[in-house]
Design a protein around this nucleic acid. Structure first.
Lengths: 225, 225
DNA sequence: CGTTGAACCAATGCGTGATTGGTTATCGCG
DNA sequence: CGCGATAACCAATCACGCATTGGTTCAACG
């Protein structure tokens, strides 16, 4: 019985119409459905592919076939994202976001915020461990984000940072050592804050980008001084 | 041997110092650690509680005890962010992110992804309701994000879109109407995809920015045709 | 040339049992 | 009584194996 795939398609449509399944409900697996409809699996699959193309159903390996439109998988879970990504992607994303964030911070930063940024830099200079340094570094970058006065952007950057902290678990520095006084970030941080203080949008953007490029260089080649 | 809990605490500190465990690494379970240190579990637990209070370690049932600070579960509370932000901020953030996303998509998009983009545009032209149109529009923008091959960036954009949908939940369009055939987004979408297909990074960035600026204009003055 | 049937693959879901931090109870010892 | 050691138990989590499911390949058949 060589039912053409067009015949199988009409038969499948009739089945769905008669079943009257609600949205997001699962319909029988392919093997079972092919037997109920009396068509071979490859033919049934072609018919299902048509319905999927039409947006009437969506399928996923291991889960099944469902009625309605595919729910976009919100990767909001930090740990799940951290598992899929890698340090290189994190840096690419920071380079995409943070220069523009610094630019907008140069527009909206309040004097109090700028003062707090300087405070962070000062304290980061006199830490006794990399761990403390990173704490002040994080706080500085978040202050820049707050200075944009964009709550949504701030939330996105918080998510990014949470992922960053999770994903860089492989890197272990000897916590005994402390950042050297000529650490490149010190002067770079000061350039960024100075640009923000001068309301120099372009310079804020550029200095942040240069800073992150340096960080990226260190990250990919940690042995280079 | 009644070792006071203070003695156990110093012993535990010595153990952690000698072990030199990296951040986010798990240390032995309580039962095992109590045996190696020669102290009873309740006493060890008190010492661990002190370290946890100090922020040096964090614990969770079923997972274990870990070095460092507890990973803050800012699991992107969409609703909370949506309450703090507003449509203008959403558009500012989209304008900050998506042009650069389009640029990177122009670099990494696969032929299959480009074909799928064209498919989205075609289907969005022949929808019968704004709701269906927005569904295809969302899918198109997400395809562009996927084409960057940056899982972290994709997750951030998903969060942004979730917030956007929540924020614009109040304003509903009459769903019986359908997008007019000369809707500005049609040609703009095609420009974006064409630029991506041509691997023209700058043009992809510019066309996406122009598109979003148009969307912003419509959003702020929805009555203007 | 298309259809069929079968086997295989990778991703997912599920159930079972082990592991782990947290809690409670009991006993020993001063 | 007070303090600590020991044990048992609880709930959350994880690790593992196994079945299921969509996706793919391939040989056989008409």
């Amino acid at each position: 019985m060589s039912l053409g795939h067009d015949a199988a398609l009409t038969q499948l449509r009739a089945f769905l119409a008669s079943a009257g399944l609600p949205f997001n409900s699962r319909l029988p697996p392919e093997r079972e459905l092919s037997e109920t409809l009396g068509v071979a699996r490859p033919v049934l699959r072609k018919a299902l592919a048509v319905l999927e193309q039409e947006g009437q159903i969506w399928r996923h390996v291991g889960k099944g076939t469902f009625v309605g439109s595919r729910p976009l998988d919100t990767h909001a879970d930090i740990a799940a994202v951290a598992r899929r990504t890698n340090p290189a992607e994190v840096m690419r994303t920071r380079l995409l976001l943070e220069p523009e964030v610094a630019a907008q911070a140069a527009v909206g930063a309040t004097p109090a915020q700028i003062q707090e940024m300087r405070n962070c830099i000062e304290r980061s200079r006199s830490t006794e461990s990399w761990r403390q340094y990173e704490s002040w570094d994080n706080r500085l970058h978040r202050l820049v984000a707050e200075a944009t006065h964009n709550e949504l952007l701030l939330a996105l950057l918080d998510t990014l940072n949470a992922v960053r902290r999770t994903v860089t678990w492989g890197r272990l520095r000897p916590d005994r050592a402390s950042p050297p006084p000529d650490h490149h970030s010190f002067t770079e941080h000061e350039e960024i804050v100075a640009a923000i203080e001068d309301r120099d949008v372009q310079r804020a953007r550029d200095s942040m980008r240069r800073h992150l490029e340096q960080v990226e260089r260190k990250l990919l080649r940690p042995q280079s001084s």
